[in-house]
Design a protein around this nucleic acid. Structure first.
Lengths: 353, 353
DNA sequence: CGTCATAGTTGAATGCTTTCAGACAAACGG
DNA sequence: CCGTTTGTCTGAAAGCATTCAACTATGACG
């Protein structure tokens, strides 16, 4: 920068003004500066700039795991908007690990990001942390799930309604013995989805055996393990609502391994409608939500905040859409599914209202 | 920091020394400083630190698109190693767009990252850019593909061998009319894969009709479009080598749409062995490579460089592994596949040697 | 007890940019 | 022709942590 000033015969201040349009500079000078910048291939140090301005052009993004196909979509949504507005993303994976999340959140702040978008892993930290960010003038938007008593901006989907619709569909095609395998219940999206599932059952006066609702991680192996567990209970459920598509994948795998057929013996419906849902065999029915939209919307709110929007916290809830594919079919007529075995274990507590 | 110094009754210099172990500090002072740090919840500004040290604890990572399932795996590999060594990732998507890549590369430098890991989108820029980074003392590692005349560190997989093995397998089960749909040929991995494909054919003295080798994007829609094109040629190929799994997905989709059967009418083999490969219908045969390994290895090299490894550039090449699943089967005996239609168009230039 | 080496501490400079207050010149009004 | 205003430009401070040279105890030794 000093070089530029020298070459253009102006002061540092002027160079800065040209670069930032922060003051009127006469055309000839302006041109000389710009030429020098060009000639030297100068790029301002974002570090120094950030230090001085108390704010960088970075947006922090904290997600559980890039490797889970749902999250990259969100990231992408954020990145697109961020990039086109001159912001860059600094990405952190928490692995749903409390401690890692805290570490990231603490360190990220010292980079003075302009904004922060979080898919929270823990139920409490963020509320405290976000307060610190806000005090430092950094807007925070929460996506996909919310920490306990979150009162800032957020973008989520209508999990409860989505799950309700999915379950209603299962009921409509004739299923009566339903099970659910859901993600960690400290996550609000898992809570809401299971609530939707329950409400649907209640709406037709059906009760579920508590053991037919299993909590696990939002991943394939979790779904697989719990599905094996559930499918060995007799009488076995004729349909399983999976908390997300990864779980659903595990469920389908388990069904196959146990020599059963999906949807013949057991119908499966997932949540997320990931790209591969229509490619699996059988193709997966799912509650569709757009990760990209989620991310883009969050970024939109953030950008607005960054440009001075001081309105009340926004808690946006995006719609979901039910996608029925091959993995859901009516139950077999006499739903023989293991009734024969309903002997010793008295599992027949599920009853029609 | 000034507060800390005040509270502990020492100078700024001492605080810094305690925090960085940059000089011996007597125990009582040291303790007082640490206590003050604790009490105030102080975290050093990474910005100021970076500015002073001419280096931040960030590692820049430039990839084509997080949304393509292969790349997150690489990212994850990098992140794991980076994080556990105290480095953070700053992630940029280029969308295979030359200009965007350049912009990212230029701006990223001004953050003074400690290292840079790139999956290049363009064939030339990086070589120039990397030189600038190196002059600034920043190590650069190239992953997955290389730009033209790259002479720095890199980690790739044995694309040529992988493609060769895959093609040999197709030949072995009896296919003679092979087609390939490959990614952009300015990318080295695409070049190498198609080279492997060709070498396999040559090795059994088979020649391919040039129109049976189609170039497109490494994505589903590309594979879909080109597959539709190829499958309408008569006689139609009995097997298609897809440049990656996304392309393969598009191919399978096209096969289905044209009322054909995979693997009955057309066998398909992909490259990457993405997670979903075993879940599609039919499950996808593929050349397996580990994105995670790729990323982790690159990060390893980078970390070594950052701690002073000045040895010759390393050009690591990881092995691939052939995974045969349902999508490959022997061709139908009389490979009737449209010979009937081999009329007007004289497409019958493929011949056995 | 003076001297000297050593270990421990400090103050100030430094990195790069932004920004604020002030300087300067030209233009304007009286 | 002088005082103001307006429009440009400059110089220096500030932001935060690191680091180097310099300084002060501390203790050893003669």
């Amino acid at each position: 920068m000093k070089q530029i000033a020298g070459m253009a015969g102006v002061s540092l201040g002027t160079v800065s003004h040209v670069l930032n349009d922060s003051a009127r500079v006469r055309e000839p000078l302006r041109r000389r500066v710009l030429e020098a910048v060009e000639a030297l291939g100068y790029q301002p140090s974002q570090l120094a700039r950030g230090l001085r301005r108390d704010k960088t052009n970075m947006i922090g993004m904290v997600i559980p795991d890039v490797t889970n196909p749902f999250f990259p979509a969100v990231v992408r949504g954020v990145e697109d908007l961020a990039f086109s507005n001159g912001y860059r993303l600094i990405l952190c994976n928490t692995d749903n690990d409390h401690a890692k999340e805290l570490a990231h959140l603490n360190e990220l702040r010292t980079y003075l990001p302009s904004g922060l978008i979080v898919i929270p892993s823990s139920f409490s930290d963020l509320t405290v942390q976000a307060e610190r960010y806000r005090r430092a003038g950094t807007a925070v938007v929460c996506v996909d799930r919310l920490p306990k008593s979150w009162n800032g901006d957020s973008v989520t989907v209508a999990n409860e309604e989505g799950a309700y619709a999915a379950t209603r569909h299962l009921l409509k095609v004739g299923h009566r013995r339903l099970a659910a395998i859901i993600g960690p219940l400290h996550l609000t999206n898992a809570q809401e989805r299971i609530a939707g599932f329950r409400r649907a059952l209640t709406s037709v006066k059906l009760r579920v055996d508590p053991e037919f609702i299993q909590e696990t991680n939002f991943d394939r192996s979790g779904g697989h393990a719990k599905a094996r567990l559930i499918l060995k209970m007799l009488p076995r459920p004729t349909a399983i609502f999976a908390g997300n598509d990864m779980i659903a994948l595990g469920v389908i795998q388990a069904i196959r391994e146990l020599g059963l057929n999906c949807p013949g013996d057991v119908s499966v419906i997932g949540f997320d409608d990931l790209d591969f849902a229509e490619l699996t065999s059988p193709s997966l029915s799912s509650v569709s939500q757009s990760g990209y939209q989620l991310g883009a919307t969050a970024a939109r709110i953030l950008l607005d905040r960054m440009t001075g929007d001081e309105s009340q916290p926004k808690q946006l809830v995006l719609e979901t859409q039910l996608k029925i594919r091959e993995s859901v079919a009516p139950p077999k007529n006499n739903s023989a599914s293991g009734i024969a075995g309903a002997d010793l274990r008295k599992r027949n507590r599920v009853r029609t209202g």
